[in-house]
Design a protein around this nucleic acid. Sequence first.
DNA 1: GCTTGACTTGAAGCGCACTCGAAGTTTTAG
DNA 2: CTAAAACTTCGAGTGCGCTTCAAGTCAAGC
Lengths: 127, 127
Amino acid sequence: MPTLSKRFSIAEVAERTGLTTHTLRYYETSGLMLHEIERASSTHRRYSERDVSWVVFLTRLRSTSMPIAQVKQYVELAREGDITSPDRLELLLRHRISVFAQLAELQHSLAAIDHKISLYSEKVASA
Amino acid sequence: MPTLSKRFSIAEVAERTGLTTHTLRYYETSGLMLHEIERASSTHRRYSERDVSWVVFLTRLRSTSMPIAQVKQYVELAREGDITSPDRLELLLRHRISVFAQLAELQHSLAAIDHKISLYSEKVASA
DNA sequence: GCTTGACTTGAAGCGCACTCGAAGTTTTAG
DNA sequence: CTAAAACTTCGAGTGCGCTTCAAGTCAAGC
């Protein structure tokens, strides 16, 4: 049962993910794709649904400041097969903690900014 | 009534703020300090309480990804005096919106990561 | 079947925010 | 007074994550 789902050009994937075609190629050559991207008749990339889904998740990791190198580590584990599931789980759990720390810091800084804003609001209102 | 409060060496400020002495000098030469830093007898910097408080707030702006250039803009407004209070308020309000966007994106990505974690948890548990 | 726009690779370049190095000066502890 | 530790300036270097360039090759519409 071969996968008959639609394939996407690099431009379509860029459109769907908000990345540029440059960045998509950069990610691929940096070893961040889980699977090799198919090539149409010759050289042009054809992304599968699975590839696109992975790119989407990848952008979630990146937008939470996971470094490229760590994404790569995750990918390398994934390519080793199911045996590394616990390792990938652990990697994600560790990353989750870092995301919580980022949230906490952001909220802490927001409070400081809000405080400053309240001072300015008074000042400006009474002027 | 001259300010008689304690002064701090650059190393002490580094200690208190978590920045390096390099970064503190870099911020100063980049025009990010509100006031000129005093110099002890000759050349060594002596930070006042006010200077340290500003550095602390500055790190809050930076930790919410305000670019150096925008911090500088804020500082330049501040140096023009009270007349620019509304401008600084507006700058902070705009930045506040960006912080909310950052929080939202972080939370969105966290949800995606949590979802993936739950898939892995099942997989690993049933192995 | 030809043109036009999309795609290809590989290497170099860029922007940001530090970070480090060198060489010299100043402070402080003993 | 001296020696070690801390400080100074200024310019160059670093790391990350793209981004752009050059010089093509390919594919889709007319």
